[in-house]
Structure formats: structure tokens, C-alpha cells
Design a protein around this nucleic acid. Structure first.
Lengths: 258, 258
DNA sequence: CGAACCGTTGACCGAGTTCAACTCCAGTGG
DNA sequence: CCACTGGAGTTGAACTCGGTCAACGGTTCG
């Protein structure tokens, strides 16, 4: 049934670890299966150390970021990783550094796939789940790519606030207090701007009464519909993939750390 | 062995078709399995018509682009799809339009997964391959996202030329003639710029002798190392996923159209 | 031949960056 | 308790990169 070498182009390598076919294929000897990392703000899990691309990371709580940076120090936050998000191998463009960074204190569960690679590679339930997770991430990535390519700075910041609000449960009826688990500079690095620009735009939005700030890191959106009207895109409904929710089935991702 | 509803959060929907769990799961009645589309420059395959997210598209030859646009007409090319690329469901941000567009004349092979969804969902070889394909696309997407977020216009265009050259087989030793299968505006929409800016930068590069243009759509890079030195990122080696190369095994993707 | 389209170039302007000053606040140590 | 420090956030002034608008040349296709 399973033929280990049938499914992947033999010449291809994982961009991250530069090993051939690391995505589940090679049965790497390893014993650790599940490690918890308690990260303080600013702490990093490096994609290049060890064989990071044979691991899944799940955010148990807190907010983290998948980061990339160039030799000259420019940083881009490629993806925000909130509670429930599964990072299935960090991507390494060649000539860049890549890491997972805690934006607030957070708890990360690391699952090492190395030991069970053979077995997992034959498990349709696991594979389908993995596909689903990456596919979801691809959707997000492409949507954010469009944001960076075609929205101006005001639209980017507005969209960002709307998304954070949506994640916090904001709807047309409810206006929850939304907290920003990250600094202005983090926001800037996520949106491809700089921190001064972000700050200026937040001030402008505050003056226009679109957003009420209770503190620099807490806000309320009085009228989400109005925010939506100013955006050329619809505000995405929060669809965080939650490994907790997966019912039944002998999936390795199903046993969720407490 | 296969439990259809075990692996996906029941509340999640495919962003593209807004059906629950469309990624292989629901056994949609359908009979067409494999269709070839011969597209002329500018032709589109729409992501929203029919159930596009139950289909894979493979570029047999030519160059296409995954596009997104807003209601106001702004367009972003999310990904360039060259020969051998597999598009495994177009992504639809809500409130945006999404389609696959031929940049040059091209031939696309469409594989309908609807009819065989059940069967495929239990096939580890197929699933592993699919995972590999999406994972590859995610890597690319995130790398391009960083380009849009943190590189200035000159760097973007330079990187673009370097990548096109690398795909055409350029190395430190060989300087092949590289052809651009797309207009200035297409390049602009890919790089998050506008066509005049692209044109200006190309002229500048031409004057600085970094690039020799034989025609507006054909160029040579005399010294790839020099180009590389001007970039903060390494030029990625071309790793197009080629479904042709997959050896043996009863994979649906393995039977390649001629 | 004219129409349409593509690519190039120039002049101008505005959005966003850079640099710098200043405030506010939390932590620390006397 | 207060003084000091350092980091985060805000705001202003100057500058620059990239966008906008417009003109123009070349090519293709009726």
C-alpha cells in the first residue's frame, strides 16, 4: 500500500533543512516526541537548528510570529500565530534567517515527527489533516501577500485592526475589548511598514473615532460595519485551525497538551 | 481505516467554495476527470465557477498566474505558474475575485477530484504528494510575501530577473537568453509596483550593464554573481515541482497529459 | 491608414521613511 | 520615597521613493 519513494520527486529538497524529502519521508532516529516550550516575549525557536522541518509546533496560548530577516537586519513577520495555530515547518528562503518568535509570553507544543515518520506517512488521517493545515496556511499567506502588494498603509492598518477584532469575537452586534499582544514595531514588521507610520495611522484612526483606545494595547471598534466599508476586502471570519476540535481518530495531532 | 469526518474541524470551510470540508472530503457527483484547457494570453479559469477547489490544475506549458483583485480593480499576481506547476485549488479571500490567468498562451490540465474524492482521501501516496505540493507553494508564497514587505522596487525587479534567469538555467558559468513571458504590467502586478516603475528600473539596470536586453522580452545576465551581490537574499535555485518526474506508484497525478 | 496596445520617458506630487525630540511609564536602586 | 534609566509610543520636519498623469515612438492588426 505504502510505497515510500513513490510520491515525491527524488531531486527535491525541503527548503528549510536542505535534506532530501524531509517532509515525513526519511525515518530519522529520534526519541523525543512531544516537548513544551514556555517562551517569554522575544524568545525564539530557530528553524535552522536541529531538524526543525521534521517538527510541528502548536501554539497552546499566547501569540507568536513566523519571522524572516535579511543579513542587513530588515525583518518581516510572515505570519501571526495565535492560539491553536499549527506551524508545520518553518520556511527558509535561502540567504535568510527564519524563526518562530514569541510576541507575548506563550506556550508552544512541539511534536517531533522524526521518530514516527514511516508510520505517519502511511496514515491517511494524519496526512489529510496535514494537508488541511498547510492548505489553510497557504490561503492566509496569499491573502496577506495581496495586502502587502496592493493596499496602502491606512488600509493595511485598518484591515489589521479589523482582523484582530474579528479574532476577539467582534461582530456587528458585539464590541469586545481587543488587546494587541504586540508592539508597534511588530505590527509594522507584519504590515511591511515602519513603527512611526503605524503609530501615526493609529492616531489618525483614533481622531476619526473609528477606533477607541483604552490603552496603547487595548481598543474597541464601535462600528465594525463602518470599518468594513473603508476596506476593499471583506474582513475574514476567524477560522483558526484548532487541533483540539478534531474529533476521534488515531491522529498524532489529536492528543492535545494540557 | 478511513474515517471520513475524523480529520477536519467540522466548522471549517474551504475559503474558495465556501462548502464545508471540500478539500477531498465530500464525494461530489461528477464525471469529468481530466480536461485540457488551451488558453490564449489573457484567458482565465475562474476559481468561483463550479467547484474549483475540488480540482487540481497543472501547467503543461506556457506561463500562467494566480490572480486576485479587489472591486476597485487593483490586481495582484499572487503566484507565477510555470510549466510543471500544480495549482491545488485557488484561494479566495472573501470579497475578492480569484482566477488563473494565462500570461502567455498555455495548456492547462485540469484534474477533477470530485468523483474520486473518497478513494483519494484514503490513498496515502496521493495525500503525501498533495501535502508536498501545497507545502512547496507555501514556501514560495511566504518568500514572495517577504519580498513585497521588505524589498524596495529596485531589489524586487532585480530579484525577479534573477529568478527568471535561474529558471531558464542561468548559473555562474552559463548565460542563457531568458525570455519574459509577460508584459510590464504583469510584472508590476506580481511585484506590487506599477508598470512605469518597472519600465524605469529595467532601463536603469540596462544602463548599468547588469542586464542586456535583446528585445523588450528577452535578456541576458552577463554576471549573475554581480546581480546576487546586489540582493539581500540568495537567488533561489529553481525547484519547480514536476508531476512528470514522479516515479511509479498508482497516483492520479502520475498520469501526465501529453 | 488609423486604432489599439505596449513600452519608454519626463514632470510633478504625495505617501511613507528617516531622523530627531519629547512624553510616558515600569523597573530599579539608592 | 524619589531619582535615574531604558524602552515604547507619539509627533514634527525634511527628504525620497514610487505613483500619477501625460506625451511620444514602435508594432500589430484591422
Amino acid at each position: 500500500m505504502l510505497r515510500k519513494h513513490n510520491v515525491v520527486d527524488g531531486s527535491s529538497k525541503c527548503g528549510s533543512c536542505q535534506q532530501v524529502m524531509c517532509t515525513f519521508l526519511p525515518p530519522q532516529p529520534e526519541n523525543a516526541i512531544r516537548v513544551k516550550h514556555a517562551l517569554k516575549r522575544g524568545d525564539r525557536l530557530d528553524a535552522n537548528e536541529g531538524n526543525a522541518c521534521l517538527k510541528f509546533w502548536i501554539v497552546v496560548h499566547g501569540t507568536a510570529a513566523s519571522c524572516t530577516s535579511f543579513a542587513d537586519g530588515r525583518r518581516q513577520i510572515v505570519s501571526l500565530e495565535t492560539k491553536g495555530e499549527t506551524i508545520c515547518s518553518l520556511m527558509a528562503g535561502p540567504g535568510t534567517q527564519n524563526w518562530l518568535e514569541a510576541l507575548s509570553d506563550c506556550l508552544i507544543c512541539e511534536i517531533d515527527l522524526g521518530t514516527r515518520a514511516k508510520e505517519l506517512h502511511a496514515d491517511p488521517a494524519f496526512l489529510a489533516l496535514s494537508f488541511h493545515v498547510v492548505h489553510r496556511r497557504l490561503e492566509r499567506s496569499q491573502s496577506h501577500l495581496t495586502t502587502l502588494g496592493r493596499l496602502d498603509s491606512v488600509e493595511r492598518v485598518t484591515l489589521f485592526l479589523a482582523e484582530m477584532a474579528a479574532r476577539a469575537g467582534a461582530t456587528l452586534e458585539t464590541q469586545p475589548v481587543v488587546s494587541l499582544p504586540m508592539s508597534r514595531e511588530d505590527i509594522a514588521d507584519y504590515l511591511g511598514l515602519n513603527s512611526e507610520t503605524v503609530s501615526r495611522i493609529l492616531s489618525r484612526l483614533k481622531k476619526s473615532k473609528l477606533v477607541k483606545f483604552l490603552s496603547p494595547s487595548e481598543f474597541i471598534i464601535p462600528d465594525l460595519a463602518e470599518l468594513d466599508r473603508r476596506l476593499p476586502v471583506a474582513i475574514p471570519t476567524p477560522q483558526v485551525y484548532r487541533s483540539e476540535v478534531v474529533p476521534g481518530g488515531p491522529s498524532i495531532l489529536h492528543e492535545v497538551p494540557k
